[in-house]
Structure formats: structure tokens, C-alpha cells
Design a protein around this nucleic acid. Structure first.
Lengths: 231, 231
DNA sequence: CGACACGTTGATGTTAGTCAACTTTGGTGG
DNA sequence: CCACCAAAGTTGACTAACATCAACGTGTCG
């Protein structure tokens, strides 16, 4: 009986590649860790000493310039993998956006475990390839879309990602969700300023495309209109 | 004696994970293909039917919006891997920037070969992780840097990447190289217009940071200055 | 109730985009 | 070999979009 038996992402995280014996083994090198919203797990530029699976919560991956500009380069959800195996330094920080729960491994332990378990590496490879696709799609947004297209695309993506299992998807959550981001963080995802993001939110609301019942709540009223604005 | 024996990237491509026996096997499923500058190997949105290793030349990965805006999301060099294993569709086009030479596999053949050769998958995983890091670093450029910083960063990156083996690196090539991009393509990498790119080139030249002996040639005169402009 | 962080709105400034004319380059054929 | 042409690149004038700066709401928590 390992602690993995109670893990809610057991069958969706990369661990799904492992059989009962292997799960027992990996549960010996992993440990649970709680993070509060705002707390960081990994810092940009540090030695890569940790990797982890997300069990609960949403986290951001971010980099910045020396003069303080920040760019969020990824967002991870339950069952996603975080950290940089097979590499000495971490190129971006990992910070919890909501209270979160992760399953942490020392990188050395994980690397050597992975080396003995090709099925695990295969899962990780598939995930990494999918993440690379998503990241490249995001480059088109950053390089070529205007503010309205950026925010519309973002809201549509959030409405998809947040309804994946593990993110409290009640029925109908597709059009009605709570953003795990502040306005500033939305700006840091989209490569905009907070004021521009705010103005675009206001505009979408005024034109009846979305409703904004509270700071972080979003209700999509006209998905078609949002899609056509997403470019 | 397989055709891989004469392959100049044999020891740097993912094939380096394979022993003599395995090389023989993989040489049975791969074939050489020449591409002329401008020719595409894979189209965005198509079924993913091919993967390949780059033997010679430089290729771009690109996506676009429906209304014709384009963003280059990656650039690949000799020994790099292209294509999307384990996935049904390709999310970006692959097009030769220079005349190129690639070693092509049908995706089905490659996927099943990889499944039997964990060492190959491991190499591919490491490469994919490194590519993801590079791509995320580029997001910072697209989202948060201005035109001057973008072009400076780009030139510095080119001066590094082009001197890697396989890219005709004579001594001193670090500061003196031929861009495999037209002005429009540079704009498509940086998320700018061709006019803005041209103006920034002119500016760097006027201020003595670089020299531009011909359309595509670049000579870095003051690397320090370029670095400080890169942000 | 008040303080503070977060968010919105408005006025203004700056950067890069747009549109258009012009120049240079490299290739082709007379 | 040179003249010509098309494609690529440059430059200038103007515009639009987003950033910046600053003031003003608003919700949350002690």
C-alpha cells in the first residue's frame, strides 16, 4: 500500500505508465508538498534539483529580463509534470497561482528512476512534445496578434483547460469559470500591460461577449463572437 | 555497410544512441531527400506522416493565422530532428531556408522503431526538452522586448547557432556570418514588420555595432554593444 | 470603519505599423 | 557585356495601437 494509491492524478500523470510494483518503488522517492498561492517551487537560473507532478492547483512558469519585465511562458494543471530532468539549470521559475499540491522528486532520483523505466520516459516524451506544440502556438499569439485577439484567445483557452478533470468541472463550467490569474498575470501571459488587459476586458463586457460577475470570474455569453475575435 | 556510415551527423543526431546493429536496422527505413531553398517538407494542419533528421541546411518551422500573418516558431540546423512523432497532425509547416538535405522516415516506421529502442527515445526526449527551453526563452523576446532588443538578440543567437558544427564554421565565423533569412523572414521570427527590421538593421550599422557587407551578410563589430542592446 | 491591494478609467506619449515612393541587387537574355 | 527587369530592401511621412503616467473606484480583511 503506497501513498500513490490515494493520488487523484495517478491515472493521468506520467505515473500511469507504471505497474503496481513500479508504483511502489517510485512512491519511495516522491513526497507530497503543499504550496500556497504565490509560493514558488523553483527559481529561474537555479540548479535543477527538483521535478514534480501537479496533483492539485494551477502553477505558472515564468522568466524575466534583468530590468524586471516578466513573461509567463507556461501554465500547468493537475497531472502535468514540472521541472527540467536531464539538465543542470532551470530556465524559468515555477510559482503557484492557487493553493497547490505537488508530488516532488529530487532530480537525481527521478533521472535514475526514469533511466530504468522506458515507459515512463515515453510518457514524458509525449507530454513534452504536446507542451512544445502548445508553446509554439502561443508564439503566434505573442508575435502576431493584437490585444483583443490575445485576450479572446486566452479566455477561450482557459475555458478549455479549466474544464479538464481535476479542475472542478461541474457541468456547464465551460462558459462559466474562475480565472486563476490576476489582471497583472494575464498581462504577463499575453505580453501586454495591465491597463490594456483591463480595457479589453471592459470592452468585451460592454459589447456583451462576456460577463464579469467578480474580479476573477468570467462568463462567456457569446462564444461565437469570442472565437471570431480570437483571430 | 549501411548508408548511415557516410552520414555527417551520425554522431550528433538522435541516431548517436544506436549501435551498429541498430543503425543497420534504421537505415532500412530511412531515405535521403534533397530540398531546395523555399521548398516545404511538411504543411501545417496535415496529417503527421513524416519525421526526419536534418543532415545539411537550415529549415524553418512556421504557423500562420487565417488572414495570412505568419510567425516562425522554430529554426532547425544539421543534426536536429523534425516532425511530430506520437501525434496525428502537424501544427506547423517545415520549409527549407537554404538548400537542404534530410533523412526522412515515415512516422509509422519511426514510431514503432522508437518503441523498441528506449535509448533513441531518451535522446529524443532530451532534445525536445532543450527545444522547449529555447522556445520559452523566445517567448520572452516576443512578449516583452522592443524592436532593437529583438534584432540584437536575434543576431547574437544566429552568431552562436551558425557556428555549430555542420554550419560551415571557419575560424572567426562567430562575428562574421551569412544569414539564412530574408528580411521578411527575420520579421516573421521576431514578430515585426519588414520595414521595422530594415530600420533597426540600418540603425545598428550607422552606430557601428555591425557591418552589412551584403544583403544577407552580417559582421559583428562590437559584440559588447550588441549584447547590451539585447536586453 | 479604514487601509490597502487590486482594478478601472482618462489623458498623453512613444513605438512600431501602414502606405507609398524610391533604390539596390541579382538574374536573364539580347 | 550590358541593359533591363523583377524581387528585395530601404526610406520617409503619417497613423494606430499600445504603453505610460496619474487619478480614481472597489472589494476584502483586519
Amino acid at each position: 500500500m503506497s501513498y500513490c494509491d490515494t493520488c487523484v492524478v495517478r491515472n493521468r500523470a506520467i505515473c500511469a505508465a507504471l505497474d503496481a510494483e513500479e508504483i511502489k518503488a517510485i512512491s519511495g522517492i516522491g513526497r507530497r508538498r503543499k504550496l500556497e498561492a504565490g509560493e514558488s517551487l523553483i527559481w529561474e537560473g537555479d540548479d535543477s534539483l527538483l521535478v514534480a507532478n501537479v496533483i492539485e492547483g494551477v502553477l505558472k512558469l515564468s522568466t524575466g529580463t534583468e530590468d524586471g519585465r516578466e513573461q509567463i511562458v507556461g501554465v500547468v494543471y493537475p497531472s502535468d509534470f514540472i521541472g527540467r530532468p536531464f539538465g543542470s539549470t532551470t530556465r524559468h521559475s515555477v510559482t503557484a497561482l492557487t493553493d497547490a499540491n505537488v508530488c516532488v522528486f529530487s532530480r537525481a532520483d527521478f533521472d535514475s528512476f526514469a533511466a530504468d523505466h522506458p515507459a515512463l520516459e515515453n510518457k514524458l516524451l509525449r507530454r513534452t512534445l504536446a507542451e512544445l506544440d502548445r508553446t509554439r502556438k502561443w508564439m503566434l499569439l505573442l508575435g502576431r496578434k493584437n490585444a483583443e485577439e490575445k485576450l479572446s484567445t486566452f479566455l477561450l483557452e482557459m475555458s478549455e483547460r479549466l474544464t479538464e478533470p481535476g479542475c472542478e468541472s461541474m457541468d456547464g463550467a465551460l462558459d462559466n469559470f474562475e480565472l486563476p490569474f490576476s489582471r497583472q498575470q494575464v498581462a504577463d501571459v499575453l505580453g501586454l500591460t495591465i491597463e490594456t488587459v483591463s480595457r479589453q476586458f471592459t470592452r468585451l463586457k460592454k459589447e456583451g461577449v462576456v460577463d464579469l460577475p467578480s474580479r476573477r470570474a468570467v462568463k462567456i455569453l457569446d462564444r461565437r463572437a469570442l472565437e471570431s475575435r480570437a483571430g
